[in-house]
Design a protein around this nucleic acid. Structure first.
Lengths: 232, 232
DNA sequence: AAATTGACGTGACCGGAGTCACAATAGCTG
DNA sequence: CAGCTATTGTGACTCCGGTCACGTCAATTT
């Protein structure tokens, strides 16, 4: 489907671009819609496009040889993924799949690469993004090193809370990941995650409010569990 | 200690720079030597330098709250680390420590950043490096997802083998990591790694040749174990 | 309204990796 | 060479998270 320059300019990365650059990119962009669990980017192949998320939610996942799924990160609307293709010709390392119905804009790799090289704000943004991604993965890897499993779950939960909300007493997570999705990110079984949630709920630390809102009533306790100052 | 432009030009990243740029950087560079286990870059602080490894070996490591160590990657001579500081002002996510006695050249962040922004070959190299780092971390994360532990160790062992040597029947790893270091990278206990090595040695798949050489006699078998086609 | 699906909840059992406590080397260093 | 430290090797025991086998519940589908 055809993409207008206006649509492209709604993404933070492309917003600073002059009209001309957007018009140059638009013909190389296309819109796509995905159902839940559909694949937006393939692992192991040299993807020739970058994926901008318009609505819904995506997740980067890997698969081990034995078919186990490995959750890596989430992509929220306005953000993009598959940017590794802009740096070299090596294959995309992980799958990106839709965790909810989603609509995305694909932008062809080469024209975008041109724009990146000519526009310092774009290359800076992508550089920062990549750096942030490395930090994110490092934190995630550190979480996996925790041998106390409830602590691991609490740590993940704490990471899911917006930094802006960290200071408040209570907080809420909109569209929280399912237990299964959390389990996959933390190398745990779904049952274990459920049991930790049970414990947190019985202690009034978290509470569900409908399917799409998870309320953290006692953020301070959650932090203590996450930091191992207290045992679950 | 004072650093000459010649010394800087021995690093791949800086080699393509014109003489002038090197002379501009040299006053902002300093040499340092480290004993084993010394810290080259601090986690959690805004490091204002990038670390180029001259000799020895470094390792990026994290620490969980409970003091457990988390191995992330190795740095070999000629390579560099701490490059995240070039992209933003956020803190260095992981420690970098010396696994052997090492000598490094520190280059101040800001001048190097200037050079990077003005020299497309440098920014390209750093971009590729960062992209490669993300791929590396993704693979490592995938390894951690393996629930079959011997398979995990074999996978790591296989990753340690140079790509150039992958095709041959046998191969060797110079200065192999200790069992403890492998355990830390794979979230395992040292004993478990030892036991896997015992199994591999008794099957004549690997063999030690002195302290600094590990010989993989039967690469094909190792690969089969790594890919889960055969159980240890 | 019945049927299907996907998410969540829960108990019982079991295997395997961590832990602990050693021993045995192997390198280094004085 | 003696002594020290780091690394590797091994057994016994324990514990805890995975697996399996269910059940419940709400949301969609038909």
């Amino acid at each position: 489907m055809q993409v207008t320059p206006e649509l492209l300019s709604r993404f933070d990365l492309l917003k600073p671009l002059p009209r001309g650059a957007l018009e140059q990119l638009a013909p190389h962009a296309s819109l796509a819609r995905f159902a839940r669990r559909a694949v937006a980017l393939q692992a192991g192949v040299r993807e020739d496009k970058v994926c901008f998320l318009f609505e819904g939610r995506l997740q980067g996942v890997g698969f081990t040889i034995d078919g186990r799924e490995v959750g890596l990160y989430f992509v929220e609307p306005g953000d993009f993924c598959g940017e590794l293709a802009l740096f070299d010709d090596n294959p995309q390392p992980e799958f990106v799949i839709a965790t909810t119905a989603a609509s995305v804009v694909y932008v062809a790799r080469n024209p975008l690469r041109e724009v990146m090289l000519n526009t310092s704000t774009v290359s800076n943004t992508i550089g920062r993004k990549l750096a942030e991604r490395v930090r994110q993965m490092t934190m995630q890897r550190t979480l996996l090193g925790l041998s106390n499993i409830p602590q691991r779950v609490c740590g993940q939960l704490y990471l899911l809370i917006n930094e802006a909300q960290r200071k408040a007493e209570s907080s809420e997570i909109a569209n929280p990941p399912t237990h299964m999705e959390i389990a996959i990110m933390l190398n745990l079984s779904r049952e274990t995650v459920t049991r930790v949630f049970q414990a947190l709920q019985s202690r009034r630390i978290v509470r569900r409010d409908g399917p799409s809102r998870l309320i953290v009533s006692d953020l301070a306790s959650l932090r203590r569990f996450a930091q191992g100052e207290e045992e679950l």
